[in-house]
Amino acid sequence: MELINENLDTIYFVILCLFLGIEVISNVPAILHTPLMSGANAISGVILVGAVIIMIKVDPTDYLSLTLGGLAVLLGTLNIAGGFFVTGRMLSMFSPKKPKTDK
C-alpha cells in the first residue's frame, strides 16, 4: 500500500499515457502502418535522454563507464535520427494525387 501511495502521481501518469497512446494510435489507417511503426520506433529513442542523464554521474576517469555511456548515447541517437529520417523519406512518397510526370 505504501508503495502505491508514494507513487500515486506516477501511476496515474502511466495509466493515462497508456489510454492516450492507444486512443491516438488506433485510428491510423493500414496504408500508414509502416511509417507509424518507424515513427514510433524513433520516438522510443527518447531513451537517449536517460543516457545523457546517466552521464552526469559517470566519473570522467572511469573509462569503462564513459565508453559504455558514449555507446549508449550513440545507439540512442542512431535510433532517433535514423527513425525520423527514414519515416520522412517514406512519407514524402505518399502523394495525395497521382503525379502527372513520370519519374
Partner: peptide
C-alpha cells in the same frame, strides 16, 4: 532497417542498466 534501429534502442536500454 526498422529492426536494426530498434536493436539500437534496445541496446541503449541495456547499456543504461549496466552502467547504472
Amino acid at each position: 532497417l526498422v529492426s536494426l534501429f530498434n536493436a539500437m534502442g534496445g541496446g541503449c536500454a541495456m547499456l543504461l542498466g549496466i552502467i547504472e
